[in-house]
Design a protein around this nucleic acid. Structure first.
Lengths: 214, 214
DNA sequence: CACTGATTCGAACGTTCGTTCGAATCAGTA
DNA sequence: TACTGATTCGAACGAACGTTCGAATCAGTG
């Protein structure tokens, strides 16, 4: 999250207090905006919608960020950074490739179900940003993708498997990210069980040798 | 596809000719609009964009459909209807559940890669329609979903398997539909090979008994 | 040719869009 | 208390939005 007004950074002597006040308010706005973007889509949501949702005047919002696009950027960057950071800390000390992949899936789904609006905005509005904003988020995405590729390559090496890592990783992402289109917390399982079921399907699918056909 | 101007149906004596002329022109517009919706999103694409892409004046477009929303509806309905129709004809005469599922996947991916723009608009703009338009497309989607559930239930019965059909079907849809976010025809395999790889992952995943863990 | 309905378009409608600006208000120090 | 920078807002900007309308053009028949 940023820590300066959209226009000019206030060099305040009471830095800690002023900065945190600003950041807290920005975080509130980001949170409300996430819900609105989730519901109406980035293009479909107007600044006036965001104003209404956050209880702040239209003009007031621009004290916290310089454009609607930057607001989407803040949401995506924060969400993606958090999920990668949590993943790294969870993977520490685990060496078995299969366990690592199960952790990858669990981490992804737990965050997904705990922050469905953020994750929908991240998944569904992936093409909405342009130029600098887009490339910064793309860099995080690439890192996240690379981590998963690494885990799968480890698994292949450890078990002497043969399959296209690219297809496998992207299929896995598809399984996981598609959830935003169907998950209903009132009828569907929680993250842990969902992660188990998807992990089973994916890992068996990728680890079982020989053709299933016939 | 419809067969009447947006406002009032022309009761022409040369029905065959007039109707087909109208339909041909509408199909061209739909085709151009699909590309534009694919590239800029439904909300992000303006009627002026569609006018430019199809080479017809802004006002002229409204002779062929009564609103931007109805145009999206035409795209989605035609795409979905076609894919379901092809699936049904391909499934005829096949009885083995595993083969049926492989056909389901192949049919989906072949259409996906042959009509990437249509399928992206279908997948990505699933929530853009409202009320009547939305429910008509939702009905086709439900039928498509139900077919896949039926095939998987058959497989479970035939092989004595145990897994959540709902999770399996939706995971499979995720794998397949996510393709629009990553497929690059210059580096990725063709539909047949892709379908084989995804079928292998999915079917092994769902058919392999016992825990893989440990 | 004249006639008719199908097709196309320029121009404009009223609305909403993202953003800006200057003035007002607030909070915190001196 | 007076002062200062942080924060908020009403009002407006020009641009772009989806849609409409009446007139012009086209194609096909008599």
């Amino acid at each position: 999250m940023a820590s300066a007004p959209a226009t000019r950074r206030p060099v305040s002597r009471a830095r800690a207090v002023a900065t945190s006040r600003f950041d807290r308010r920005l975080a509130e706005i980001v949170s409300h905006a996430t819900e609105v973007f989730c519901e109406k889509g980035y293009e479909g949501a107007s600044m006036r919608d965001l104003s209404r949702a956050s209880g702040m005047s239209l003009a007031g919002l621009y004290y916290y960020f310089e454009s609607k696009e930057r607001l989407l950027f803040l949401i995506q960057k924060h969400t993606f950074t958090t999920i990668v950071q949590r993943l790294k800390s969870r993977l520490e000390g685990v060496n078995d490739p299969e366990q690592q992949i199960r952790i990858f899936i669990l981490n992804h789904l737990e965050y997904f179900l705990a922050n469905p609006a953020s994750m929908k905005v991240l998944s569904h509005e992936a093409e909405a940003l342009k130029n600098g904003f887009a490339s910064e988020v793309a860099a995080i995405k690439r890192e996240y993708y690379r981590i998963c590729v690494g885990l799968l390559d480890d698994l292949k090496r450890a078990r002497g498997l043969q399959f296209s890592t690219r297809i496998a990783v992207l299929s896995l992402f598809g399984m996981m990210n598609w959830i935003y289109t169907w998950h209903n917390s009132r009828v569907d399982a929680d993250a842990e069980q969902l992660a188990d079921e998807m992990s089973d399907i994916f890992l068996r699918g990728v680890m079982t040798g020989g053709k299933v056909r016939r």
